[in-house]
Amino acid sequence: MGHLILRVTIKLLFAPIILFALYVQFHGDYGPGGGFQAGVIFAVAFILHALGFGIDQTKKALPPEILPWIMVVGLMLYVGTGWFTMMMGENFLSYDVIVPGSHHQAGQHVGIILVELGVGVAVASSMLMIFFHFASREPEVADSDW
């Protein structure tokens, strides 16, 4: 269990970090950012929670059993976009076919958002999975352990 100041700060920061991750995720077309960064920032919010409140509290909020499923869902969102374009009769990941006949390349935008969402979901759950597995080995970290 962390110190009081840490816990209050983490409670204040948790929601803005998640919001920033979503901004980075969906604003990647227009500014710096994208799925990888957003996924990492999303995972960092939960890692902060684990550092402040202890890993068991975080496991209650986000059960580690569902993380492998989310990892697969993220990857399948990416691959599924490719399969969809193939089923529409184009090459793998040729986004133009998603919205055919668009004058402002709407298919590209939709495809990029879907693919980036897949990357973000896969990266966030993978990072959390790695962190949970490392952090679960030692139940409590004393200050003298550093």
């Binding site: 990888f36 402002h104 897949g118």
Partner: peptide
């Protein structure tokens, strides 16, 4: 080709979608 203002994103996800798929893997 894409009308995406951030070229980095369009290269990453559109021109080189296969690379990014590999990175996710």
């Amino acid at each position: 080709d894409t009308q995406v203002p951030n070229i980095v994103t369009s290269v990453l996800a559109s021109y080189r979608g296969f690379d990014t798929l590999g990175e996710t893997y």
